[in-house]
Design a protein around this nucleic acid. Sequence first.
RNA 1: CGCGGGGUAGAGCAGUCUGGUAGCUCGUUUGGCUCAUAACCAAAAGGUCGUUGGUUCAAAUCCAACCCCCGCAACCA
Length: 473
Amino acid sequence: MSKNVYVTTAIPYVNGAPHIGHTLDYLLADTYVRYQKKNGNTVRLQAGTDEHGNKIFKKAKENNIKVEEYVANNSKKFQDLIKKLGVEPTDFVRTTDEAHEKRVQEIWRRLEDHIYKSSYEGWYCEGCERFVPDSEYKEQNGICPDHQKPYEKLEEENYYFRIADFKDQIKEAIEKDELKILPEFRKKEMLKLLEDTPDVSISRPKKQLSWGVPVPGDGTQVMYVWLDALSNYITVLGYPDKDISDFWPAELQIVGKDILRFHSIIWPAMLLGLGLPLPKVLLSHGHVQTNGEKMSKSLGNVVDPLEVLDKYGLPAFRYYFLRHADTFLDADFTWEKYDAAYNNELANDLGNLVQRLATLCKKNNIVGLFDYQPKKDSSYCAMMDEFYFSKAFDYAWEKVSDLNKHIDDEKPWTLAKEGKTEQVVKVLTSLVKDLLDAADLLEPFLPETAEKINQIFKSENIAPPETPLFPKS
RNA sequence: CGCGGGGUAGAGCAGUCUGGUAGCUCGUUUGGCUCAUAACCAAAAGGUCGUUGGUUCAAAUCCAACCCCCGCAACCA
């Protein structure tokens, strides 16, 4: 029975070029999408860019470029990256799309029962155009370090979204895994957080924030990021103009750990307010660090994803970040580790396996198994169904390692020398089947590679590829 | 006392829920093989499981206290 599956990725804020961490979202989503497609399901994959807000407005100004142009350029960078990663979203949303803006305004209207106006009072820096928390105020002794000006007490009107109206419902949904938060320790964290979440401010005075969606019915206020950005998951499906029940609720929403809180609290509250069902799974992945340190501009250790992609190509990139980045924990990237993974694992384990087995087949005239149907593997499926992709990948890789052992155990070259032709054919055929099984498990992670393996071992005359799958560097 | 994660062989990690001879990968050393991308396979060396105390016949695993790393957050996407 085929079903509809909707998968979403977080929409990055386009105030700069893509960061290596953004790729995790896309790779994880893509892996799941491919797995679901293999299972015969119809999949819709969303991606997009978050393009409103002061930071972006200022950046554009600094660069002396129209803000519309600035966000378009940056959005393009993300779209290019997605393409390079071999990911093909069915839907791409930009929060500056007219359709999105109109739909968000309608969403606002539908939530109005839970929205109220109130004033916020706090320490404000004119230069930064922002409020600072009391702790920061104290730390800096009341003077903004960037502008050398004392903070001033300022009061401003904001619209607030009454989270309190939905707390109990959200709590129950999370506890019962109706809204399943992965990994488990994040679920605990979110439940704790939910308890003392205050109502959230969802607008800013227009004079302070001009680059955003106007609040319907109040020309003085503009929507603040959350209502605008989070809505993308459903506006892209056409809500509220269209019936979205074919694909909503989403099967899987993927976010970074830093924004999980908004997706576990504000987002469910919005959905409940709209009378929509909650997504089934919220998966939060970790961040990519380097040498155990956070990547940051100030530390000067930022790694450019495009540079990594260029070094060994896409399969190597997907391999590293899907297998060596634990699906749920922080990952560590260093060039040394990347090189080691490429040479020791992709080249020596898999690439060399394909080479030696293909050569053995060629020398012994083994015919390709062109209509072979790979076996289903229930352990693998269990891990994939639990969204533990890096574990499933490990499992698939074990099959690859085992094959290298089996070849050594069976010693087909010895059998051939002894003239045991029948046995050679039997042994090699069985090894090829095992390899095709392994390739099948690898397919969601390394589609290109799996395809190549299929081509080689399903063709009439099996022969090693002219250039090895993963040439050593 | 904000919340959370972690401290196990040179490195990276699993094992902790459900106590019972401490395991995997890389690296190192030695041996084997020759189908293969100087690849592959096998074996060995290497750990008082952060500290202290407790429970138990038995603790990496349970309990308590403490030390050390890291992440998130404080209306900053």
